[in-house]
């Protein structure tokens, strides 16, 4: 079979698997929320609520229907993009998610950029002398950033830069004294497009600490990945061949080893997105950043079942899609992969 056809087949199988995984996740979340011990009605109204109120709420949530009917309705609604309505204020869940997702994406993308630049620099720095002090420090950096509890790191950063030095605001996304930009929900883009310096400055000042904290925490993954792959590449035959042709070490590293070491790092980026979400959940809560994870925390506190269900399904779906996208990108970029 030609490579082209192999590639197409791989792409097709990967793309077909994604909906199956999404369906599995949706089913899992549905079953967990229905079959878990404890009645959601009890949790919402308390044990001693009058029977009439309980029955009304049960009917409103559709919990009086048979499980299979509930499941069918849930899947049908999901396919149509309907995630139900929040219990606390009757807003459609999809609308709540749509409002808070840009904040999370803005923070996530900035953090990922910081993590990539910082991590790749640390990972690359040890290459001149493997097992040298810089290389060992790089390895310890990887473990150290992993071991930092995200919320604690965030609190320490807040204490130092916001409370003691007073350089930046403690939390939130935008200064309360200004009117927030409104078009896409991405404040950085919106304020740039409106050419509003005050808005842009306010956005950046609020974004710096959360993005830097999350970026620092994730940079260890990049540093470790690049360090390991670069070292593997430098031990390979083609590097040996390049050296024996008399190429300088700089050229060998930059033109032969580095491109081959960077490709697996792209795969790591896909995996990082999953940890990014775990970290972002805690970072958003610590910095009161009004993103999707912050809403999830609120929804959990209010025992808002539809909202929890909707957010988890959407976030898990995003993770699966990013995973597929990265796999496809690697397959397209790497001529060596056989399927």
């Amino acid at each position: 079979m030609s490579r082209r056809r192999q590639l197409l087949r791989y792409l097709a199988s990967r793309l077909l698997l994604a909906p199956v995984m999404l369906w599995l996740i949706a089913t899992l979340v549905f079953l967990l929320l229905r079959l878990a011990p404890g009645d959601p009605i009890d949790a919402l109204l308390g044990m001693r609520a009058p029977e009439a109120a309980r029955a009304a709420l049960r009917q409103q949530l559709g919990l009086d229907q048979p499980l299979l009917v509930q499941y069918g309705k849930f899947l049908l609604d999901l396919v149509h993009g309907d995630l139900g309505a929040s219990l606390t204020n009757q807003t459609p869940v999809a609308e709540v998610i749509g409002q808070s997702l840009p904040a999370s994406l803005e923070l996530g993308v900035c953090a990922l950029l910081i993590a990539a630049v910082l991590g790749l620099a640390v990972g690359f720095s040890g290459i001149a002398r493997p097992e040298g002090k810089v290389d060992l420090a790089g390895r310890l950096y990887g473990i150290g950033t992993y071991a930092l509890p995200p919320f604690w790191a965030a609190m320490v950063v807040q204490l130092v830069f916001a409370v003691w030095l007073g350089w930046l605001p403690v939390g939130g996304r935008f200064p309360a004294s200004l009117v927030a930009p409104t078009v896409t929900g991405f404040y950085l883009l919106d304020s740039l497009r409106a050419w509003n310096w005050e808005q842009f400055n306010g956005t950046v000042r609020h974004l710096v600490l959360p993005a830097a904290t999350l970026g620092l925490l994730l940079s260890g993954i990049f540093a470790n990945a690049l360090r390991l792959n670069l070292r593997r590449a430098l031990r390979s035959d083609y590097v040996e061949a390049a050296r024996s042709r008399g190429l300088g070490e700089t050229r060998v590293v930059l033109h032969h080893a580095l491109p081959n070491a960077l490709l697996p790092v792209l795969t790591i980026t896909g995996i990082t997105v999953a940890s990014l979400i775990g970290g972002a959940l805690l970072i958003e809560v610590t910095y009161s950043w009004p993103g999707i994870a912050f809403r999830l925390q609120e929804a959990i506190g209010q025992r808002d079942y539809p909202l929890v269900q909707g957010i988890v399904v959407v976030v898990a779906g995003l993770v699966v899609l990013v995973g597929v996208a990265v796999d496809l990108l690697v397959a397209l970029l790497d001529p060596r992969i056989s399927f």
């Binding site: 929320l33 979400i277 898990a316």
Partner: peptide, 23 residues
């Protein structure tokens, strides 16, 4: 397939949902 799906989910998200349900 089931285990891979569970593995794909962010660790903290999954345990948050479970802890929320289990009390």
């Amino acid at each position: 397939l089931l285990m891979d799906t569970l593995y794909t989910l962010p660790v903290l998200l999954l345990s948050v949902v479970l802890a929320f349900l289990l009390g």
